[in-house]
Computed example of a mutant assay.
Amino acid sequence: MSSPSYKEIWSEGLWHNNVVMSQMLALCPLLAVTTTASNGLGMGLASLVVMVVSNMLVSMIRGLITPQVRIPVFIVLIAAMVTMVDMFLNAWMHELYKVLGLFIPLIVTNCAILGRVESFASKQRVLPSMLDGFAMGVGFTWVLVLLGAMREFFGAGTLFADASLLLGNWASVIEMNIFPDYGGTLLLILPPGAFICLGLMLAGKRVLDRALEKRAEACAENKNEEGSLEGAV
């Protein structure tokens, strides 16, 4: 299997084949933990670490795994990584651990992670596999953070509340109480609000993709016209 370029890997993970915006995977943790941007960032970083290390390990041992047992082996490796991340958060970021709760162990069942391990890391070299895991993890993280920011901003009038629990005391500078007297919109904090905000994000991506496609087509037509004129001259 030919290896895609690093630019293609990065663009696929970040935008064109985004875990959520294109593949519609990992919706359970996405909708559950994004009540704030800080929670979304915490879940995104945890998933990113698991993706990168799982892709790396599978790529390293891909020649030793027989096709008959590859799925159980992949699941065991992912489960081991998730367990380590879960224990790390419990030990060093306990407040965030309590907020994310059950959704950290449930990373094991994230179809996006197993899917990338199966479709990419098991067929590619170590470095491209690690980059693929990183790109997919960053793509997943920015969606979590943006969705959490939208729900938090319109639902509670704050941004990155309790970020210091995740990043340390210095992160208190990014904690913003934008509308101190804002009563909040409960709908956006509840699960239906997550569906509404996600729908708006998906619609925005499609509009932007269509605009970019039209722009690319217009540029291609202009180049063809210029080439025809040069040929005529």
Rank of each mutant, 00 (worst) to 15 (best):
G40V: 03
G44H: 09
L41G: 13
G44P: 11
T34D: 14
V58A: 04
L30Y: 12
S59L: 03
S47M: 06
C28I: 13
V50R: 02
N39Y: 13
L57G: 01
S38Q: 08
S59A: 15
S54N: 04
L48A: 06
V58P: 01
V33K: 09
G44Q: 06
M56A: 15
L41F: 15
V58G: 00
L64N: 06
L31Y: 15
L48N: 10
M60H: 00
R62C: 04
V52R: 09
M56Y: 11
L48W: 15
R62Y: 04
M51K: 15
C28Y: 05
S59D: 05
T35G: 14
T36E: 12
L48H: 09
V58L: 15
L27Q: 14
I61T: 14
T35C: 08
R62Q: 11
S54C: 03
L41I: 09
M56E: 03
T36K: 11
M43V: 02
V50M: 02
A46P: 01
L27N: 13
A37L: 05
V49D: 04
M51N: 13
G44R: 10
L30T: 14
N55Q: 05
N55R: 05
V33R: 09
S47H: 07
S38I: 03
L27D: 05
V50S: 04
L41Q: 12
A46K: 03
G40W: 01
M51T: 07
V33M: 14
V53L: 14
L30D: 04
V53Y: 10
G44L: 10
L41D: 13
L41S: 12
T36M: 11
V52Y: 11
M56Q: 04
G40R: 04
L27E: 07
L41K: 12
A46V: 02
V50Y: 05
T35M: 13
G42L: 01
L57M: 12
C28K: 11
V50F: 07
L64S: 12
S54V: 05
V50I: 12
M43K: 07
R62F: 08
V58Q: 01
T36P: 08
M43Y: 10
T36F: 04
